[in-house]
Design a protein around this nucleic acid. Sequence first.
RNA 1: GCCAAGGUGGCAGAGUCCGGCCUAACGCAGCGGCCUGCAGAGCCGCCCAUCGUCGGUUCAAAUCCGACCCUUGGCUCCA
Length: 491
Amino acid sequence: MSLSVTNSLTGERESFEPTGDEVLLYVCGLTVSDDPHLGHARLWTHADVIARWLDYSGYDVRHVENFTDVNEKIAARIGERPEWETEADVARHYITKVIEYMRGLNFRRATVYPRVSEHIPEIIELVATLIDAGHAYEANGSVYFDVTSFDDYGTLSNQQLDELEAQGDPDERSEKRNPADFALWKAGGVAPDAIAEHAKHDHGDDPPTGQTWDSPWSEGRPGWHIECSAMSMTHLDDTIDIHIGGHDLVFPHHENEIAQSEAATGETFANYWLHTGLLETEDEKMSSSLDNFFTVEAALDEYGPNVIRTFYLSTEYGSKQTFSEAAMAEAEERWDRLQRAYDTAVDACDSVDATAKTEDTDLRAAVSETREAFTAAMNADFNVREAMAALRSLTDAVNRHVDSEPYDYHGLKQAIETFESLGGEVFGLQFGAETAGDVDLTSDLVELVLDVREAERAAGNYDRADDLRDALADLGIEVQDSDDGPTFRIE
RNA sequence: GCCAAGGUGGCAGAGUCCGGCCUAACGCAGCGGCCUGCAGAGCCGCCCAUCGUCGGUUCAAAUCCGACCCUUGGCUCCA
């Protein structure tokens, strides 16, 4: 069975055919002007899992994810801290944080994380090409894309040109030939009113203007959309296989990317467009500008990477998702159960009761059914929820199997490998992640407390025994009694 | 106003592309049983939906067609 994806360009589910040996994947990344929130991390996670699945399926993946480090919102924050003297200073601060969170969430490193500020020459070259080809024009040092010069304008978002309203400030509008034309290059620095709109502190009489670069048209700054085209072409190719981005970027950002790229090269810009649904809180999307967001930093602190990933993987990439305490609690339950089953399988497999001569056909059937169902689900437009359900069925099989000895060594080993490959490699979940050294000492101490507790239980002092269990629970250590004595898990 | 996505049980959320195996998946919550001193975990079982509304096509529709209602997103910086 082969992979099929829902292509926003056509609205249809299509079978996936890469153009070359490598899958060229571009992820429309973040503008680094503020702390990233859980909405951003949702896109990253789905992009990460999609890249992981392509890789797992045997494709070589060239994964490019950009950082937009030139933007008026970034410039507006210059001076907010003493060390933030330039736009680049602010951007560096947030890029550092984003990478830190990406590591915290266990993302696989992209092939490259290009930044706009490193690609000004490529952007200028692309703008010049568009002017030469008659698709763009210069006005007072700024350059605009002429949307009427590109017949297919509006196909991604199904916009009709005559429905589109004028964008930007009045000065800019008066420079444009058509209201829907968009800037490729803007003369001068960031305007004071734009700074004022986005600033989080008072700049006084001398607002920053952001960085400017020399160009054939003026000292100025690149437009928002042109960067993605330039970086995509630089690090991938004129035609790429998959472009991933948030649903809120369909128009105008992605529409404009297509127009300027295809006008410049004459080639299809991206064969498959994947749009991720937005994260909402209550009834509105989570957004920096709405100030209703939960930062990645806070979430990592409170829930940890596995619960966050499990939360995201309970909905398909294309659907919107609602963030709530209840949803996170459910994700925590789901992850705990998966992790417990993994630990159970490992413990059973490593015990003396596991023998090579035992064969549990139910367990082994569950392993192969899990793998088949997981693969089918992921190939059906990356249906992570169904894939997670498949993994869940394996936990049932493992738990049933360890109900009685002897254990099926090979069957358990297959189950463990399945958790590790599908749950670990593909979903990026981290089983048994605690560090070895600390766990040894902790384990010994817990054993000691449990010995005391057993003595109290034997003597019938159940109140005392329960106190000890509660005290351990407060430390995050979950005690479970069984016929063979107590066992415990460190959470 | 225009464009897009979506409306499925208490919550959450698959299935809709390729109509029948959907009296509707995996869960969370809840309930009962087993196990247990108790609890937890685990196992077994149960409860709850005819799939926004109306109409149509069909032997057959959550799935196709039409109309309408509602929600969210985009049309301004936004993953």
